[in-house]
């Protein structure tokens, strides 16, 4: 009879990769539903396309690497990556761009570095950056929320637009899409309009763009669910959102006419989704408690900097990727002291 010899910890929890990924997918449901409510069926189609591509890519690469694909595909991590990517994409993006992004995320950003647990960069955000840099026009065409346009995109319409382009609907992009609130604010500010003037426009709600501002809340709900279940730590989202609010608040206090109020930053773009679901990726984020606070806060600061003075309207993807690079260094300098060590010199 053989007794297995294992190192500590000996108590085994049920926290398998599959369970964690499953919980995160579950937590994404409210936010996804909200996106679907405001932006129509394109959201769902995007997720389906991205997920299908991700699973096929993962399967192919694992076969190439001589591993058994079944166990790894079943851990749901590829599904989650593709899902997050799809949520960040415009709802009527041409299908081949979604396929390209999803395959890039899985094959190049994840598997070429050694698969789950070895990738230095967040695959979903790297793919998003690839698409944004390569196809800036398509990637910044967002649908106008149904609450404004008075029309919700139906499934056949979304299918036509994604697979055959907007011409198939008898419309041009300009008729069905508009700038995102961040983009709108940015363009108006660059024309030297004051915030009080800009806010007169119909597209603004209480905090951010109408329709947009509520999507974040649903993602927030999912994020709190994850914290409650111990899947993610509260430190990264807390650090990121606090830092974003604080920096935005300082600039708003200095000049409220050229810097949007802090809640605008919180409820626009991918801030909430990024804080709870993307920055907290256990593989690419910082792992020490103090490190996580620093990591989150730096992302928040970077988001504000890039949004205010950078070349692109939203900044979550770039900030997360930049901090991914810094995460090992942050971990190195914030290692917690070993219990019983003195002065921190010999820890």
């Amino acid at each position: 009879m053989q007794f297995p010899v294992t190192s500590s910890p000996h108590l085994q929890g049920g926290n398998h990769v599959q369970r964690v990924m499953g919980l995160v997918l579950l937590a994404l449901l409210p936010g996804t539903t909200a996106l679907w409510w405001y932006f129509g069926w394109g959201v769902v189609l995007n997720i389906a396309i991205a997920d299908l591509t991700a699973v096929v890519s993962e399967w192919l690469v694992l076969r190439l690497r001589g591993r058994d694909p079944r166990a790894t595909v079943a851990d749901l991590s590829a599904l989650l990556t593709a899902w997050l990517l799809a949520l960040a994409l415009p709802p009527l993006l041409p299908w081949w761009q979604t396929v390209l992004g999803s395959a890039f995320a899985i094959i190049i950003v994840k598997q070429l570095f050694g698969g789950l647990g070895f990738n230095p960069f967040n695959p979903a955000m790297a793919a998003y950056a690839l698409l944004l840099i390569s196809f800036p026009a398509d990637m910044t065409h967002w649908l106008t929320p149904a609450i404004l346009s008075g029309h919700s995109v139906t499934l056949p319409e979304a299918w036509q637009a994604i697979f055959h382009g907007p011409a198939a609907l008898g419309q041009t992009w300009d008729a069905v899409t508009g700038a995102t609130p961040l983009d709108h604010m940015r363009t108006e500010l660059s024309q030297n309009h004051m915030i009080s003037e800009i806010r007169q426009s119909l597209v603004w709600g209480d905090f951010g763009g109408r329709g947009w501002e509520w999507v974040g809340n649903w993602f927030l709900l999912g994020g709190l669910f994850l914290i409650w279940h111990g899947v993610i730590s509260w430190r990264i989202p807390f650090g990121m959102l606090t830092a974003l609010l604080f920096v935005a608040g300082v600039f708003w206090a200095i000049d409220a006419q050229t810097h949007p109020f802090p809640a605008f930053h919180l409820f626009s773009g991918g801030a909430i989704l990024g804080a709870f679901f993307i920055a907290t990726d256990p593989v690419t984020a910082s792992t020490t408690p103090r490190g996580q606070l620093i990591y989150g806060a730096m992302i928040g600061v970077l988001v504000f900097i890039i949004r205010s003075w950078g070349g692109y309207p939203d900044a979550v993807a770039f900030s997360v990727l930049l901090m991914n690079m810094a995460a090992p260094t942050i971990d190195y300098y914030t290692q917690p002291q070993v219990f019983g060590a003195k002065d921190g010199n010999d820890g």
Binding site: L100, I108, F135, P136
Partner: peptide
């Protein structure tokens, strides 16, 4: 349409 990334420096590294 062209994949702009391939023309940019990251494309060279990849």
């Amino acid at each position: 349409q062209g994949l702009l990334l391939a023309i940019l420096p990251p494309g060279a590294f990849m």
